[in-house]
Structure formats: C-alpha cells, structure tokens
C-alpha cells in the first residue's frame, strides 16, 4: 500500500516507526543460495539489472514483504524479469513446475539432489 500522505511507496520505509530489531538468524538453505546465484549470473550476463529485480520486488507490494521470505520474493522477481526479457515463457515455467512437483514431495527428491 502506498503511503498517500507522504508520497512514498511502501518499501521506502526509512524513518518509519517499527518494533525491536529481530535477532533470529537462519543459515541459508541450498535453494536460497541457488536463487542468489541465478540472480548474480543472469544479471551478470545482461538479461536484467538489479533495478529490474527491485522494481518487481517493490511492485509485489507490502503483503508479499510480510508473508514471503527474502529468497521467495527474489525467485518470483528473477522469474518475472526473465519472462519479460524473453529468456523463458510463463507457460514453459508453469509446465516445468508441474513436472518438478510430480517428482516427489521434498526438495531433495524434486530437484534430483
């Protein structure tokens, strides 16, 4: 939701009131490292820019920020940018996602290791 009174968008949160800084930390999972690697490699090869990554993250809105994890939002944005760039199509991605899910119920099984 945009902050109508200030003209700032939701992600422009510097200076807002907020609760204590959370101290929980998790080790990055393999799938998260893979998302990070795909972002670095695809942007490094010129398929999209870090600004493109952020545009989609910002357009996903505040609810996505609150309900999805960091790399969940990143994979959504990386995929969207690659569709826009014509590297993949939405239907290719949807078809492959169904095939992936059919391989097994865990990440290890679905990713083949």
């Amino acid at each position: 939701m945009d902050k109508v009174e200030t003209g700032r968008r939701w992600h422009d949160m510097g200076g807002d009131a907020a609760g204590p800084v959370p101290d929980a930390q998790h080790d990055f999972a393999l799938w998260e490292k893979r998302v990070d690697a795909l972002m670095v490699l695809c942007s490094g090869k010129g398929h999209f820019t870090v600004d493109g990554l952020r545009r989609v993250l910002e357009d996903m809105g505040e609810e996505a920020f609150e309900t999805m994890t960091y790399y969940e939002r990143w994979i959504a944005s990386v995929s969207q940018n690659l569709v826009e760039a014509g590297v993949i199509t939405q239907s290719e991605l949807a078809t492959r996602m169904e095939e992936v899910a059919a391989r097994g119920p865990t990440y290890g099984e679905a990713s083949g290791g």
């Binding site: 999972a29 795909l38 695809c42 994890t69 969940e72 690659l82 590297v87 993949i88 992936v100 990440y107």
Partner: peptide, 28 residues
C-alpha cells in the same frame, strides 16, 4: 537441513524449474 527434507514449497518448485530451463537453454 531444512531445504532437503521438508515438503517442497511453491517457490522452491519455481527455483528448480527455472534453474533447469536456464541450463537447457544454455544461459548457464
């Protein structure tokens, strides 16, 4: 490791699918 033995999530499914497509297309 939470990435290997928990139920596959929608976003993990997307990561696997995207990674495979990018490899098949020769992007990486």
């Amino acid at each position: 490791r939470p990435d290997q033995d928990h139920p596959l999530t929608y976003w993990q499914q997307m990561e696997i699918a995207l990674r495979e497509l990018l490899i098949e297309k020769g992007v990486t």
